[in-house]
Write a protein that binds this DNA or RNA. Structure first.
Lengths: 110, 110
DNA sequence: TATTTATATTGCAATATTACGATTAAAGAA
DNA sequence: TTCTTTAATCGTAATATTGCAATATAAATA
């Protein structure tokens, strides 16, 4: 179907999956890394940095924006993109809590 | 195209995206949580716990196995699935390093 | 051996994702 | 106003994902 059955999962599970999913593409990882590295963050620079066409980058930026991880400010004809620190912090809490689950508790006979 | 251009990204970027992608579905999050909670981890139990058909769960388990996050041991007619602690630790390092990037360094004028 | 039980695989339909050329929109420059 | 620049949107092709019914497989049991 291509359609996830989100209804049967908890809000937490869906939120975690949503964050993870948006990070589940190397171009979006690369974009986020670039935004962390650079203080200037013009969309055109991202297009030049990463070897993908402008509409493709624009689409990835849209997805990052849809979960709130980045925000864009119009500056004349160009757009300056930045990490949204509040949302990044939220994601960090959600994902690290999951990643830091105690492995010693996960013991089965296998 | 539906096909990611992995060639133009670094091994690290692709590895991160691969981990994130596999966690990018609530059913797989739910499965991992269940494997953490329970010490017994029979496939059939997972099917009962999560409201998805058996073939669907089997498919999700396959994807989790493909990145090495879980391993399955045959026990008679059933299969016992467990978290692979080594791989989980690897993922934890890769993702938390990314998540813990210094937000104060990411400053633009926006 | 035949039957049951538990899981994997196959095949398929519906939808989503990735990528890009072409076009559009909006702001600045000539 | 016209031209240029920059980024978003549209349209489309190729591929991937999600989900399940039906079937296959493999081990245990009767």
């Amino acid at each position: 179907m291509g359609l996830s059955k989100t209804e049967i999962f908890t809000a937490d599970q869906n939120a975690m999956a949503r964050y993870a999913k948006v990070m589940g593409h190397p171009a979006r990882i690369a974009i986020l890394q670039y935004l962390f590295e650079m203080n200037s963050c013009i969309c055109g620079d991202i297009v030049n940095e990463i070897g993908l066409a402008q509409p493709t980058i624009s689409q990835h930026l849209k997805e990052l924006k849809s979960v709130g991880l980045i925000k864009g400010n119009i500056e004349g004809t160009s757009v300056c993109y930045c990490i949204d620190k509040d949302e990044w912090s939220k994601m960090k809490v959600v994902l690290t809590t999951f990643l830091n689950q105690d492995l010693d508790e996960a013991n089965c006979g296998c």
